[in-house]
Every structure is written in structure tokens, then in C-alpha cells.
């Protein structure tokens, strides 16, 4: 028997986890859908003039990024949260699946499923509202109304490669928080993130200042994928992998 990974056992684990975590996931998804619909409804309705509606669609960026961050971080922060409670942790830790499979199930639900689910509900809600608006203003120039495809084209993720990693980095940090802390996972993780980012920003700013002050910038107008973008990508990828690895070790060493 393979004690590290077995596909059959992993599938069983996903089904089992869905029974318990699926409820939290679906409720959070339902609330998120409600919030997105409410945002669209309160901002755009009642429909008045097409140009006005088009201008007001600018709320989509902050909604997508800020609320998306909140959604995936809340989901990730609740995944291993039950391990902080003795009554739940014992049964879960003793389920005959390897720690790697348990970690992988966590990765699947938080980094993959939650991200895809959020993008999907955002697309569906946006599509529904835009379709309604277009049907309402039959006579106007509805082409100027940016649909969801245009929204994603405008905020093209390809223009800054590290953005691909953002959902994984966010979920890795909050997943670690859920495994590391026994109580108040979200708040404690958020405080740690704030302190860490503050310290990181301070170090980077001062380093840049020390290294680059009184230097002449070259290649200032380069619009291609410059080296720094890929260096940043590599640093964030490494950071995310390290955080995921710590989560795995923490899960392995979890005591009840």
C-alpha cells in the first residue's frame, strides 16, 4: 500500500471533506453571490441613461479584486480551522489517508475550487446584468457597454505575470493560518500578513533607496516583459511554495 498518495483514497477523501466543508463552502458562495448581486443592483438600478450606466461599471474592478480576495481568504482560513478543536480534530486526523492527501484536498478546495467558483459567480452575475441592461436600452449604442469579456481584456492578467500567482499566494497564507492557529484564524492571519507586509515593504523601500539613489535609470521605456517581472514572479512563486510546504509540515505535526 502506498502510504503517501493513492488516487482512490484521495477521491474518497475529497468526497468525505465535501460533506463537511462543502456546506461552509456553499454557504459562503451563496453569501458572495448575494453580495455581488447587491453591488450590481444597488449601483446600476434603476436604469437611467446608458452613458451613466457605462461609467458606473467602474465599480467592477474593486469588487472583483477586493471581494475576490476576501472570498478566497475566508474559504482558505476555514479549511483546517476545525483542527483547533479537539472534538473535531481527533476524528479527522485519524481518517486513514496520508497527510499529503489531506493537504492536497485542502489545496484543491481552497486554491482551485474557491478561485474558480468566485470567477464563475462573478462572470454569471455580470453577464446577467449586462444582458439585462442591453435588452433595456435596445435603441441606444449598447456596444460601448463593456461586457465581462471586455472587463477581463481590460484587466489583462498577461500584462503582469505575477498576478497569476496571486490567488495561490493568498490561499497559501490563509490555509497556513487555518492550520497554525487554534482560534481566531482569520484575524490572527490577517494581523500576521499586515505585520509581514509592513516589514517587507520597509525593507524593500530602504534597500531600493540605498541601492538606487543617485543612479541613472536605463531602459526606462521598455514595454516588454522585463527581467524584473520574472524575478518578481519567481520570488512570489517561491514564497507561495514555501508557505504551502510549511502548511504541510504543520499539518503533519499537528497534535491534539
Amino acid at each position: 500500500m502506498n502510504n503517501t498518495f493513492n488516487l482512490h483514497r484521495f477521491t474518497l477523501l475529497l468526497k468525505r471533506q465535501w460533506l463537511e466543508f462543502g456546506k461552509i463552502f456553499l454557504i459562503t458562495l451563496l453569501v458572495a453571490t448575494g453580495v455581488i448581486v447587491a453591488f450590481y443592483g444597488l449601483t446600476l438600478l434603476p436604469l437611467e441613461e446608458l452613458g451613466y450606466v457605462s461609467r458606473r461599471l467602474g465599480f467592477r474592478e474593486p469588487l472583483f479584486f477586493i471581494f475576490g480576495f476576501l472570498f478566497i481568504s475566508i474559504i482558505a482560513s476555514s479549511y483546517f480551522a476545525h483542527l483547533g478543536q479537539k472534538s473535531k480534530a481527533i476524528i479527522d486526523l485519524l481518517i486513514p489517508a496520508s497527510t499529503f492527501e489531506k493537504f492536497l484536498a485542502g489545496f484543491f478546495f481552497t486554491s482551485i475550487l474557491s478561485v474558480l467558483a468566485f470567477i464563475l459567480i462573478f462572470i454569471i452575475t455580470d453577464w446577467a446584468f449586462i444582458a439585462y441592461i442591453k435588452s433595456y436600452f435596445k435603441t441606444g449604442n449598447v456596444k460601448e457597454l463593456a461586457d465581462v469579456e471586455m472587463f477581463f481584456n481590460k484587466n489583462d492578467i498577461n500584462s503582469f505575470a505575477p498576478l497569476y500567482l496571486a490567488p495561490f499566494t493568498v490561499t497559501s497564507v490563509f490555509l497556513l493560518g487555518s492550520a497554525y492557529f487554534n482560534r481566531f484564524h482569520y484575524i490572527k492571519t490577517a494581523i500576521c500578513v499586515m505585520l509581514f507586509s509592513g516589514a517587507w515593504t520597509y525593507i524593500v523601500m530602504n534597500s531600493v533607496e540605498a541601492i538606487l539613489s543617485n543612479k541613472t535609470p536605463i531602459n526606462r521605456y521598455s514595454h516588454g516583459k522585463d527581467t524584473m517581472e520574472w524575478v518578481l514572479f519567481a520570488i512570489i512563486a517561491l514564497f507561495t511554495l514555501v508557505v504551502f510546504s510549511i502548511t504541510y509540515v504543520r499539518l503533519k505535526e499537528k497534535e491534539v
Binding site: 493513492n6 483514497r9 460533506l19 479537539k86 472534538s87 481527533i90 485519524l94 486513514p96 489517508a97
Partner: peptide, 29 residues
Amino acid sequence: RQPAMLQQICFIPEEFHLPAIKIDSYVKA
């Protein structure tokens, strides 16, 4: 905590939590 060992252990803790499902679903899972 290898699966091969965990399959051989039945632990009935003093404090435990069971999910809000029916016995059939619990057994199935």
C-alpha cells in the same frame, strides 16, 4: 500517521463531533 496503520486503529474519543448528516451518509463517507 500512515494510512496502513490508521486503517488498523479505531479511536473512540471522549469528546467528539459528528457532522449534521444521517448515519447512512456518514457511513458512505
